[in-house]
Write a protein that binds this DNA or RNA. Structure first.
Lengths: 222, 222
DNA sequence: AACAAAAAACAGTCATGTTTGTTTTTTAAG
DNA sequence: CTTAAAAAACAAACATGACTGTTTTTTGTT
């Protein structure tokens, strides 16, 4: 599924009708089928990798014929694009939930973000992110989303830790540290580059380090 | 280049003759050509990604016909396997050099390892490592090498920092931290998940953290 | 009857493995 | 030293299989 440069309206013909006349039963079913196809795509990327995810496989995974699938997404590219958007929104939703749970406790934040990355969505996202390195079309879609996520990540985190507001430099460092360590471990675990037993000690180390970097604690130590 | 399960002697027929009679002109040229093909494979993986690296492309990159290429590596798989071994040895050599340079100074060690990961070999290696997640044949080759590297990494590092010998727990934690942060940043940079300007502050933070974890310094603070 | 959804059939492209042919180097005999 | 046979290096062509995009046919709602 090479994601060609083709421009293609990702919405099927029925979508326009639906938006004009309100949701008919058919347009509802169509939306369901589209969602099922996107889910199947994510599962395929996790199982086979982005490179080995083909339209016949996605169709089979969704329990549809390839013809039916191409009725909803006229293109392989369209399906991938829709999948990327869905993954990004999943990621944002998950992060927002994590922020709600967190409530000023860095321990919880670290654990929550770590648990997010254990889900299939992260695996699929990293597959796509790495594929984007050598695929200009993928990169065009993915890069702005990566930026948006980083910005929302930071702006959300600054709300959670107001005591950090007057030291944006060390704050950004702490955020980058968290992202790097947690994502780094998640990826290294995927590629069996590190030992699984090290995960917990590492998370605790990160929590400790964050506490050390907090302005309040830095003042305490003076 | 899907790397099928095919067993295949990776050495060409000339190798045996050479080992008996000493290096002839042909066996020398053959070795050169094989090296050129492996280099071309690495370049292709970096440029196009592992998934889009095909035998015609490698042949073109090496300036050979596909037929000639398949004379040296009867199989696409054989070429990939040889490339993996070469990458692994490159990695070990680079690490050994880094260890020689280092000489008891953690600042240098962090910087040196970071610089290693900026080279194409790391990009290629990560492409293969991620592909191995969904490719059993690749995994069979790669996993033992990952283990070997981690072991040599640790045994080399313990020689460099003898003061750490009596605290293997915190030592392994420090090693995993270094690996995770440095590799995590390298990968996040590839996928534009973090900002490039954060690299240097992060490396300095890591150095500081390592100093904090050292037994000697922990004693000082008592 | 009209139209969307689903399925099936078709043609084009590309990588792979295999086979066959050509040139160059090595070996060894005359 | 010359030269013929063998082996290795290189090149080209063929057949197969798989995925892609497109088009046509069937099924089922409204």
């Amino acid at each position: 599924m090479a994601l060609a440069s083709g421009r293609s309206a990702s919405a099927p013909r029925s979508a326009k009708t639906a938006s004009v006349n309100g949701p008919t039963q058919q347009s509802l079913k169509s939306a369901q089928t589209r969602a099922r196809l996107i889910d199947a795509t994510i599962r395929c990327i996790v199982k086979f990798g982005y490179a080995n995810t083909t339209t016949p496989q996605v169709a089979a995974e969704a329990g549809l014929s390839r013809g039916a699938m191409l009725h909803h997404f006229e293109n392989g590219s369209a399906l991938i694009k829709a999948t990327i958007v869905e993954l990004h929104e999943k990621r944002l939703r998950a992060f927002r939930r994590a922020a709600e749970i967190t409530e000023h406790e860095p321990a919880t934040m670290v654990n929550t973000y770590w648990r997010q990355l254990q889900k299939p969505a992260f695996v699929a996202f990293h597959e796509l992110a790495l594929a984007a390195r050598t695929n200009a079309d993928l990169a065009r879609i993915l890069q702005p989303l990566q930026l948006e996520f980083r910005q929302k990540f930071n702006s959300q985190a600054v709300l959670l830790f107001p005591e950090w507001q007057d030291d944006p430099v060390s704050f950004e460092l702490a955020m980058t540290l968290s992202q790097t360590m947690i994502e780094g471990m998640a990826i290294n675990l995927l590629t069996s580059a590190i030992d699984e037993t090290m995960v917990d000690p590492m998370l605790r180390l990160l929590e400790q380090q964050i506490r050390l970097m907090k302005p309040a604690n830095r003042d305490q130590s003076r």
